[in-house]
């Protein structure tokens, strides 16, 4: 059975990439595939910030991703070096600090899809 690794590299506020990734992951699970990991790199690590404060009428894609991963028990990893460079130290529940090395090792058995 195919398993997927999903790589996000863009800011959750600046594009719909997080929404696309969520849609893809939802469809994959429904079709009986597995999602091994979400990995946040580059500006995507902004999603891990604990103090995201959005008006109620704007979609909070970071929270949606965290909820999705909790519900389906999918590891939600972010690159800790990329996060530190962006001043993200206190992170939201559900986001796991990891390194690129960990992403690389988890990649071994899965298909990578980048958003």
């Amino acid at each position: 059975m195919t398993t997927f690794s999903l790589l996000l590299t863009t800011s959750p506020l600046a594009s719909q990439d997080f929404a696309s990734a969520l849609q893809f992951a939802g469809a994959a699970l429904t079709a009986g595939y597995q999602v091994d990991q979400f990995f946040l790199y580059q500006d995507a690590v902004l999603a891990a910030a604990a103090d995201i404060d959005l008006p109620a009428d704007e979609p909070n894609l970071s929270q949606r991703l965290a909820d999705f991963c909790r519900q389906h028990q999918i590891p939600l990893l972010y690159c800790v070096t990329a996060a530190e460079k962006r001043g993200i130290v206190t992170v939201n529940t559900g986001f796991i600090a990891a390194g690129l090395a960990e992403f690389a090792m988890r990649l071994t058995d899965s298909k990578l899809v980048q958003f």
Partner: peptide
């Protein structure tokens, strides 16, 4: 700075024998 981050990614992937 993307080129730099792509480089780091390449090195990390190569380090685990990809």
């Amino acid at each position: 700075s993307s080129g730099r981050e792509a480089l780091d990614l390449a090195l990390a992937l190569a380090a685990v024998e990809h």
